[in-house]
Design a protein around this nucleic acid. Structure first.
Lengths: 222, 222
DNA sequence: ACCTGAACACCGTTCAAGT
DNA sequence: ACCTGAACACCGTTCAAGT
């Protein structure tokens, strides 16, 4: 074989597929991507300076799929719609949340997205401070929730895998302890978690934060 | 040398010290802990079944340092005090937030802590659902914020380390792009970030969520 | 009961050498 | 300009063997 005609976008694409077939972000490796592309691992280093650079590119690729809502809508509606899209994008690509956390929002796509979200709030009359605070609050809440989801998925497939078996044990321990120690609120929390879909949970949390914002706004008007 | 007289607590202690001297959680390794204890890496496996088990134990050790506030105080005061303590504990141990995220809250310490927080809210008249939602919202917000902090610390020490140098470049890129693309809200966000201490930022975010809770409560009373 | 050494199956990254 | 092979310095984990 003479040349493998590799390109940056091709590597990113293969990386996303490879990640999807991994059980967690730290199982993702350069060597696996290289194998998928039928090239040597060292070849990747001609296109990307490091593994971190690939992670950044993957995160950007995912972030690029997030579309902005109609700017003429009410700010609450805009935020609800936008974060609903982000939730869907994050849950479509497995480990997307881990990727976002492992990575710095230094690209135009991600910075523009963040800028847009703060912009919605500033246009609605909030201060820049309130806007960026609300953004990070919602974003971290969403990221944390989606990460927990993917951890749950991980131990549900705890059949042959040893690491997953350990996680599975930890979860049964949660039930054990909450029961033995009569941690009734935790028991309710687990039950509540199972009765509600993840998206419903996210929407409820988002609503809570939006209510807090609204309360701040009303105070300002006085 | 005959015996090295090792114990579980000793390993946990050495692990926390080793982690503190690492620039990130994934630089933390069994072999480094073993070297610190002057034992072979394989010895650790007599006391802990896996690296994950050590991470869990480390997280529990840190979580155990969190003390509960006086239960007779108002719920807002209790939450503010408690999360202030958590913030301090998280920032005292470097990479504590990463540890909490990489780990499952399956121990008695952590479950009791979570149960207590929901309990504060339920005692204040909130539903179990609202309580557990508020807990995860605040917790994820706090964790995300502290993690960003430690990433910043990481690239500030970007002298000889190559990985840190890359992160440093990413940050200058943030300034570059926000300037070139006229992302004014992001510019303000960065400035705001620098003018406020991390703890002030957290307190502002917590206040926002508490306001949202209060608004929900008032609606319920109608 | 406790600890080691060697080994296995992996990593990210570099770099001289090839085409 | 693009790609490889071998090497370096690491990983987590296992397990026969030692005391």
């Amino acid at each position: 074989m003479p040349k493998a005609k590799i390109s940056r976008p091709q590597i990113i694409q293969a990386s996303l597929q490879t990640l999807a077939s991994c059980q967690s972000l730290d199982q993702f490796s350069m060597r696996k991507v290289a194998t998928a592309l039928h090239i040597d691992a060292s070849t990747i280093y001609w296109y990307f300076e490091s593994k971190q650079a690939i992670l950044q590119a993957m995160a950007d690729e995912i972030a690029a799929q997030i579309s902005f809502p109609d700017a003429s809508l009410a700010w609450q509606t805009q935020l609800t719609q936008l974060f609903s899209t982000i939730f869907d994008v994050y849950t479509t690509h497995s480990h997307a949340a881990e990727l976002m956390i492992a990575t710095i929002p230094s690209s135009e796509v991600r910075l523009t997205l963040m800028n847009h979200i703060i912009g919605i709030l500033v246009s609605a009359g909030f201060s820049e401070e309130q806007g960026s605070l609300a953004l990070s609050t919602i974003d971290f809440f969403l990221t944390g929730l989606v990460m927990d989801l993917s951890k749950e998925r991980q131990f549900r497939t705890a059949i042959n895998n040893k690491q997953a078996a350990y996680l599975h044990d930890q979860v049964t321990q949660i039930h054990q302890i909450t029961h033995d120690e009569h941690l009734i609120h935790m028991q309710n929390s687990v039950n509540n978690r199972n009765s509600q879909s993840a998206k419903q949970q996210f929407e409820a949390g988002l609503k809570l934060i939006l209510k807090g914002l609204l309360a701040e706004k009303n105070v300002d008007l006085n």
